[in-house]
Write a protein that binds this DNA or RNA. Structure first.
Lengths: 249, 249
DNA sequence: CGTTCCGTTGACGGCATTCAAGGTCCGTGG
DNA sequence: CCACGGACCTTGAATGCCGTCAACGGAACG
C-alpha cells in the first residue's frame, strides 16, 4: 500500500491493536483503513485541534501525543470528558454529527491523521464489518463516558482519581504504551482536576494520600502503580466496560 | 407491511420522529425498521429489563413507559446514567457490545419491542444509510452522556436538576409527548438524586428553590416549566448537544 | 534573574450529606 | 370504615468533604 500517507506508522498500528483486542481485522480491512488516511498534521501543546460548533469534513486519528475532549462553562470552569492516546479516533463521531459540541485540545505536541468523512462514508457503503468495527469504537467512547458519569456522580475524590489512573493504565497497555507498572501521562494536577470534577488543590491532597498509602505515584507526568490490587479496590475499577473480549462484532 | 408486529404502533413512530428530526428517512427504510421487530413484550415497574453482564441477542426499542440505565456501587449507591422515553432504543449498543456493563430498568410499567441482532446486522450489510441513522442514535446517547458528565462534574445542585429537566422537556417534545409547558416524568426525588449525583434530601431542597423562584414545579411525576428562559440560564442549557438539525448523515 | 507555571500546604468557609423526626398519600386488610 | 404499613416527601440540625483563599517553593524559560 505505497499510496498510504501512513506506511509503517505506529499510530495506525495502535488503532489496529485496539480493534484486534475486540475482534478480528483482516488484511483487506487493514488496507482500507490505511488507504483512507488523506494527510498527517501536527499541532502544539495547548492548541485546540477541533473547535466546538465548527463544521467538520474529516475524522482525526491520533498518532502521537495526549489529547482531551472538554468544554468550558460560563464561570470559567472546565470539564474534561475524555482523554485520548495514540491510536484513538478523536472525533469519529463527527462523521455523523457533522460538528461537535465540545472542543478537542492537545495536551502535548501531537501528530494526527485525517480520514475524510467521504472515505468513512465509502466504508459504510462497501465494508459492513469494518463499519461495525468503527461503530464499535464510538460505543467504547460512550462506555468510557458512562464510567466517568459514575466517577463524578458517586465516587469519592480519591476514588475518582484512582479510577481514572487505572483506566489509563489499561488503555495504554492495550496499545503497548506501558512500561511494567509505569506509564507516561503528561497532565498537570489541574488537568486531572478538570477530568475528575475536583479542584487542583484537592487533587494534590488526594495524590499525596495515594502516595502515602503506597498505591501509586503521579509525578512529572509519570504514573507508577505500586499496588494494583488495592488501587483497583479503592477505585472500584472493573475493566468490563472496556469490552476486552475478541468476539465477532 | 402486514407482517409487522408493530403496525400502527406509536412507539415506532416516535423512533421515526426522533430520526426525522435529524435526517430524512425514506419509506423503504421505514419498512425495513418495521419489519425488523420480532416481538413485543411488557414489564412491570421496578423490574430489570436488561441485566448487566448478560449476553444479549436483540436490541430493545421502548414503546411505552420510562426506563433508566444505571449501575449500583459497592456501598449501595446508585448512579443513573440515562433516562429513556418512548421511541428510544434502550440498548442499541448491545448489537456490537454483546453484553452491557450497566442494568436497564423499568421506572414505570413498560412495553418494548425486540429487534434481533441478526436483523440489525442485515441492515448493516444491506442498508448503509439506515445503518448510519442507527449509528447516529448511539452517538446521540454518547452526547447525552457527555452532557451528564458536565452536569455532575461541574454544575451546582440546582443547575444539575434544572438541566436534566430541560433536557427531558426537549427530548419529549421531539416525540410529541409534552403538553404545552408540562410533561410527565414519573420519577421519585430519589430517582432524580441518582440521576444527578445528589441525595434525595438535597434534591428536595433544590426543587423547593426552583419552585420558590417560579422556574418550575415537579410534583407527582409531573413537570411544569414556568419560565423557560430563566430556567435555561440557571441550567446553562444549550440544546446543541441534541443535534436537532436535518442534515444528510 | 525576573517571570510564569506548577506543586504544596495551611486555615477557613460553604455546599451537600447525614441523621433524625414527622407528614402525606395510598393500597391493603381487619 | 378505618387502622395499619410502606413509600415518598418535607424540614431542621449537625457533620464533613471538598472548595476557596492565600502563601511559598521549585523548576523551566526567556
Amino acid at each position: 500500500m505505497g499510496t498510504s500517507a501512513l506506511a509503517g506508522d505506529p499510530g495506525l498500528d495502535r488503532l489496529l491493536m485496539k480493534m484486534r483486542a475486540r475482534d478480528i481485522v483482516d488484511a483487506r480491512e487493514e488496507d482500507v483503513l490505511r488507504d483512507s488516511v488523506a494527510e498527517v498534521r501536527e499541532s502544539r501543546a495547548g492548541r485546540i485541534i477541533i473547535r466546538a460548533g465548527a463544521m467538520i469534513g474529516g475524522c482525526t486519528l491520533l498518532l502521537d501525543g495526549l489529547v482531551c475532549r472538554y468544554r468550558d462553562l460560563a464561570d470559567g470552569q472546565r470539564q474534561i470528558m475524555e482523554l485520548h492516546v495514540a491510536g484513538d479516533f478523536l472525533d469519529l463521531h463527527s462523521f455523523l454529527l457533522k460538528r461537535l459540541e465540545h472542543h478537542v485540545g492537545a495536551m502535548t505536541p501531537v501528530r494526527y491523521a485525517i480520514v475524510p468523512h467521504q472515505r468513512v462514508r465509502e466504508i459504510t457503503e462497501r465494508h459492513p464489518h469494518l463499519t461495525r468495527l468503527l461503530w464499535f469504537q464510538t460505543l467504547l467512547d460512550a462506555a468510557i463516558h458512562r464510567e466517568r458519569i459514575i466517577s463524578v456522580g458517586r465516587r469519592s475524590a480519591v476514588g475518582r482519581i484512582a479510577h481514572l489512573l487505572c483506566e489509563m493504565f489499561v488503555r495504554l497497555e492495550i496499545v503497548g504504551m506501558t512500561d511494567g507498572n509505569r506509564y507516561a501521562l503528561p497532565l498537570t494536577q489541574g488537568d486531572l482536576a478538570d477530568a475528575t470534577g475536583l479542584t487542583s488543590v484537592h487533587v494534590n491532597r488526594m495524590l499525596k494520600r495515594l502516595r502515602d498509602e503506597a498505591l501509586l505515584t503521579f509525578r512529572g507526568g509519570q504514573v507508577a502503580i505500586h499496588d494494583w490490587d488495592r488501587l483497583q479496590r479503592v477505585a472500584e475499577f472493573d475493566p468490563a466496560y472496556l469490552y476486552l473480549e475478541r468476539l465477532p462484532r
